[in-house]
Each structure stands twice: as C-alpha cells, then as structure tokens.
C-alpha cells in the first residue's frame, strides 16, 4: 500500500498497533480483521490479547515479554501477504434491528436530515434500507460501528454533546453507531432500538461481531412499544457466511 502503510507503532509501553491506513476504508478494515485472526491463529508468545479498531490491529503485550521480539514476529506475519485482499471473516450473520426513527425518542432526526441535505422522510427511507456492516466493536462493551452510508451522510459530529440512552442509533461521518450504554455524544440521535448489546450474564455476552451485516427497518410507535422491553428488541438473525 501507499503512504507508508501498513506500519507498526508502539501504543504505550505494553502495546503495538498495526495500522493499515490513516483513514476509514473498506480494504483496510478487512485487512485489520484478517490480520488479527491470523495473529490469534499463530499464537505469538508474549501477546496477551489482540483487538481491532476501524483500520488497525492492536497487540497487548504480556508484562515481561520482549517487545522487540514480538514486533519482529508481527512484522514477519504482516509482510507475508497483502492483507487488504483478505476476505471478510467467516461466521457472519445478517441482523435486522427494528428501529423507531424520530419522534421524541430520537429527537435529532430532523437536524441530521438537514445536515445531509434531505427531508426527514427521505432520511428514514435511506437509513432504514441501508445494509451496513459492523466494521468494529469498540468504545463501550458490544458497541458496533457500522458503515458505510452514501456520500450524503458525510455529516460532521456536532460540537455540542447530547445525552443518548442505551440502544440509541446515531449517525455521523458516513457511519452509524448503536450505543451500548447511555452516553454523551456528538453523533446525531436519529433512531431508537431495543437491542441490548452487552449481556454479561449470558453465554454470548456480546451480541454483534465485526463483519455482521445489519439493517435498521423502521417500525411505528405501537410496534416499538411492543418489542422494546425484550432484550433482542425484536431483532432477528440469519447466517450469511
């Protein structure tokens, strides 16, 4: 790749970050996921755990490990193939998550639609039909970042933070985020779902995985009040790969 990527840098004293790009992009996202899977399969000594962000893979080192030796192993694996050509991870699902757009439950729909240069009705039509992919799980437990939306949705984050509840669907910079917990955010709150993303007591504590494909079909208030009390919030799943 160009622009000096991929590259390996240190993150604090105990971490290494392998970056596949300096900006959000689909090939770099696939590369990060595939490289992490290969790292885990190889089981490099001195690596405590790995994770991915949008376009990078993180290695947390064991205390007492030799960072230089781990970096050398990581670099050998990195150089062994072109990771941007890697396929998406296996075990992906297609998930439909019913969403109540607008109303007083998601009060920033109008502002988001205006920023994207369309009517609120058109915004709901586009967002409820978009089939997006989980690019990473992060920030909070089980919280997905999903992309990529059409160009019109390259809207900035708001400078003013607003408080959103758990399971809020928010939009900015051509991405959607579904919040795991109540949180302040500069992303616009356009829809509300009932999906509980983090279930620490369950055998599958994290509901979504990177690579999953997701839609957010619109439901009305009557339907939403019927499904929102359930942990799944009316969502359904099917395997795609």
């Amino acid at each position: 790749m160009t622009d000096g990527f991929p590259r390996i840098d240190s993150a604090g004293t105990d971490g290494l970050l392998v970056r596949f790009s300096g900006a959000l992009g689909e090939p770099a996202n696939r590369a990060a996921l595939a490289y992490r899977a290969a790292l885990d399969a190889e089981g490099i000594e001195g690596v405590a755990e790995t994770s991915t962000s949008l376009v990078s893979t993180f290695l947390r080192l064991d205390p007492g490990s030799d960072p230089g030796a781990v970096e050398e192993r990581a670099r050998t694996l990195l150089d062994s193939r072109n990771w941007t050509e890697a396929p998406l991870p296996a075990g992906r699902r297609f998930v439909r998550i019913p969403t109540l757009y607008g109303t007083d439950r998601a009060p920033q729909l109008a502002a988001a639609a205006e920023a994207a240069g369309m009517s609120a009705e058109e915004a709901v039509r586009q967002l409820s039909q978009a089939r997006v992919r989980v690019t990473t799980i992060g920030f909070a437990p089980g919280q997905p970042y999903l992309g990529t939306l059409p160009e019109d949705w390259d809207i900035p984050r708001s400078a003013e933070l607003a408080q959103v509840p758990a399971a809020a669907l928010v939009v900015a910079v051509r991405q959607l985020v579904l919040f795991a917990n109540a949180s302040p955010t500069g992303w616009r709150h356009v829809g509300q779902t009932g999906l509980r993303l983090f279930r620490p007591e369950s055998e599958t504590p994290f509901v979504l995985r990177p690579g999953d494909e997701v839609t957010f079909p619109a439901v009305d208030e009557a339907e939403f009040s019927r499904i929102e009390g359930d942990d799944d919030g009316g969502a359904d799943w099917e395997d795609v790969a």
């Binding site: 991915t52 993180f58 799980i137 437990p141 089980g142 919280q143 983090f198």
Partner: peptide, 9 residues
C-alpha cells in the same frame, strides 16, 4: 480482564 478488548470492554 483479558480477552474482551476486541468486544469493547
């Protein structure tokens, strides 16, 4: 905990 970083924890 170790191992849940990839899931946002």
């Amino acid at each position: 905990r170790s191992g849940a970083l990839a899931f946002g924890l």
